[in-house]
Nucleic acid binder design. Structure first.
Lengths: 325, 325
DNA sequence: ATGAAAGCGCTAACAT
DNA sequence: ATGTTAGCGCTTTCAT
């Protein structure tokens, strides 16, 4: 594999000149520069990023650690991050932590080792430890869920309020016994959505179940709720993956969404308009979350002294037919 | 940020010993090793991967360049690659080429620069150029779509046969005028699925449209087909993203899937059982494609002289109700 | 078993 | 404007 010295030799100049020519630095004689370019081309030269980054003490790589690559909410964030990073010349390493603190920790290690320029992270759990990153001065932006401990940059969605509004919408639709299906305790979005639900129905009317943010767990929880002596007539479901489980359960029991049981789901997945009746959803600005996070991260990379910011974006209730009888 | 010399100084040994101790190399006096570990711990030392890789002339990073992060088919591949890479100590950089040859080329450059150990790639187009990777000796395995030119490792799905079987299934179901909605010309999966369809209906009965592998294009194409004087009574759709567009179009025109127009779609997306009627699909072993690709890649990384392999996996027709009247 | 020293490929002072 | 040189942090001969 050709190195900078090979190019220098071929062009009859020093490696320094090659470096300068290739990086468009300072003033290099146009003729020499041309010779360098030709030589590089002929040799199929590609600069060694490792050596460059080692020397420069910086990389143009961002790590994005998300909890589920198969969840459209997170892939939309990924797109947002990527689109913004891309135009600034950064590449994005997508790491899938799988809601697993071990994998998350391992990926943080990788980020540290590879000396990435910054990290966007949707913290898996209660105990996500970003201290190691902070200690090394690697900028971090949390998305979707806040980091515990001292403040850093964050991009969140006002999900409690969204849950409250969604629940009120169900109340207004005439549903009288509304249940909430949310994620595990300690996961902030799960807790917030539950809290918003409670805001709307009041503690005394609370009926909820927790499960993993997965279809499987939601099936179990939904079955439980439906088999109650006094089953709910409406469901607020905390993410679209869970909603898949819920809808399957309803279908298998012959319970009709909307008519028999009102449904509002978080996340406007692409299929929500295809089902019958179309699903009323809380649309989160996932792409925007990603973009803003990347912006914040890049800003902090260039200026480490910025004051930490928390950006809270609003979600939007999209009323379709699953919340009408 | 602490370096190996800091650790060496603190432990009162040479950097060589620190390196050996930390990498569990050869025989290091247990007592010294312990001292090194303590010193490293105290300093919060994280080895600099850049320097290590530069020296070792190798990285433990794989690049995965796929054409659409939001397509469940590709995210399933990503999972497969990641799961397998992970246990071998490799991390995976996910790059989203967006069916865009420019972005694809740029990511290939990044892979080259960062000296990744290998690349898994779903080639965007006719003219994907992997020569630069090959020339540098970076192992590449193509997934989903073959690379043009001299052979390399590939993991494909027998998608032509799957399309033929799916079409025959529609014929057997009593549909008489079956149309095919496929991707752009030159994209191998699109061409193969069309070919399989033609195998089954015969050239003389051919009725097909091409569009981007997106919901939007599929909407237009579906509308066109439905407005024909002699419209189709069944549709074979080449991917699940397009199917979303098709189903929306049908719904907006009051055409009932299955009953009025039979539907078979490629890809068993998570929502396909939720719609009414449940969707008959061609399930591709995407996760498996990813796993096998990663296996091949790792094998080639350790032994560059292996003969190139093409693995072709079978797809499976899952008969549900959208292909029955 | 341990240390000294070279060098991976590049960039940035510094010198000319 | 160009070349010389040092050094980024690590691993790995080569001595000892």
């Amino acid at each position: 594999m050709a190195t900078i010295s090979d190019v220098a030799a071929r062009a009859g100049v020093s490696t320094a000149t090659v470096s300068r020519a290739l990086n468009g630095k300072s003033t290099v004689d146009p003729e020499l520069a041309a010779r360098v370019l030709v030589a590089a081309e002929e040799l199929g030269y590609h600069p060694n990023g490792l050596a460059r980054n080692l020397r420069r003490q910086e990389t143009a790589v961002l790590a994005l650690i998300i909890s589920d690559v198969e969840n459209p909410f997170f892939t939309a964030i990924a797109r947002g991050v990527e689109d913004l990073a891309q135009v600034s010349g950064y590449s994005v390493v997508l790491c899938n932590s799988d809601e697993n603190e071990d994998k998350e920790r391992r990926y943080i290690d990788v980020a540290l080792q590879e000396r990435v320029a910054g990290v966007v992270l949707s913290p898996t759990g209660r105990s996500t430890n970003v201290d190691r990153l902070r200690r090394q001065g690697t900028p971090v932006v949390a998305v979707d869920r806040p980091l515990t401990g001292p403040d850093g940059d964050q991009v969140l969605v006002d999900t409690r309020r969204a849950a409250r509004d969604a629940t009120r919408h169900l109340v207004a639709g005439g549903y009288r016994r509304i249940a909430c299906l949310t994620g595990p305790a300690g996961v902030r979005t799960a807790d917030d959505r539950l809290a918003g639900y409670l805001d709307a129905v009041g503690e005394e009317n609370a009926l909820f179940r927790r499960a993993e943010y997965r279809a499987e767990g939601a099936r179990v929880a939904a079955t439980e709720l439906l088999e109650l002596p006094d089953p709910p007539d409406a469901l607020l479901v905390a993410n679209s993956t869970m909603t898949i489980g819920v809808l399957e359960t309803l279908a298998s029991r012959g319970v009709r969404p909307g008519r028999d049981v009102g449904i509002v789901s978080f996340d406007d997945a692409p299929w929500t308009t295809l089902i019958d009746p179309p699903l009323t959803v809380v649309a989160q600005p996932a792409y925007e979350v990603g973009r803003v996070a990347a912006q914040l991260l890049l800003a902090r990379i260039t200026d480490g002294t910025r004051r930490p910011t928390t950006t809270t974006l609003e979600a939007r209730l999209i009323e379709r037919q699953s919340s009408r009888r």
